[in-house]
């Protein structure tokens, strides 16, 4: 029986020869490594304190996002309802999915000079992949990524957003 075992396993043992001693070593090492794994999971099972999952709707008020979490593109407005978008369309060109469409108009200044400005900054949230390229492309930091994420709506049209607030205008000095 013993001899039989020996010859059978010396040829087949994965760790090249060694015979019965190696075979028994393999078995012991295998069992040992399995026990190490079992001990780890048993530790987790018996130390049921730390929970790594977010209990989402319950902890909505206290949710903490990682710094780089990207939820949607927004345009920053200051207290005077002024933004920094010059309508240069760099973001529109940078966008891989044609998520952004900028409609421009011409403002007439008191001196009678025409100046290009945005009429509507159209943002299609349903097409956006949150790749951040528009934010990188923007020369005046007019847009940024917000950390909102509850974007579900009943009507697809609601996902098409106008980012510049009504009545807003470009901040003085931004070119």
């Amino acid at each position: 029986m013993d001899k039989n075992l020996n010859s059978k396993n010396s040829s087949s043992s994965p760790s090249s020869g060694g015979g019965l001693v190696q075979y028994i070593k393999d078995v012991f090492n295998g069992v040992k490594s399995l026990l190490v794994g079992l001990r780890r999971t048993m530790y987790y099972f018996t130390h049921h304190k730390e929970i790594i999952t977010e209990q989402y709707p319950d902890n909505r008020a206290t949710l903490v996002f990682p710094e780089r979490f990207k939820g949607e593109v927004v345009m920053t407005h200051d207290e005077n309802n002024e933004h920094a978008c010059t309508g240069c369309t760099a973001c529109e060109l940078a966008c891989p999915n044609a998520t952004i469409k900028i409609i421009t108009k011409f403002d007439v200044s008191p001196e009678g000079k025409k100046k290009k400005a945005i009429d509507k900054f159209v943002y299609h949230l349903e097409l956006c992949t949150m790749c951040n390229l528009c934010i990188v492309a923007c020369p005046t930091d007019a847009i940024k990524m917000a950390q909102t994420f509850e974007h579900s709506v009943y009507n697809r049209a609601d996902l098409t957003k106008i980012l510049n607030k009504p009545g807003s205008k470009i901040r003085e000095g931004v070119e």
Partner: peptide
């Protein structure tokens, strides 16, 4: 339940 507790979930 066992799976969740082992994986530090609820």
């Amino acid at each position: 339940r066992v799976a969740a507790w082992i994986q530090i979930r609820l």
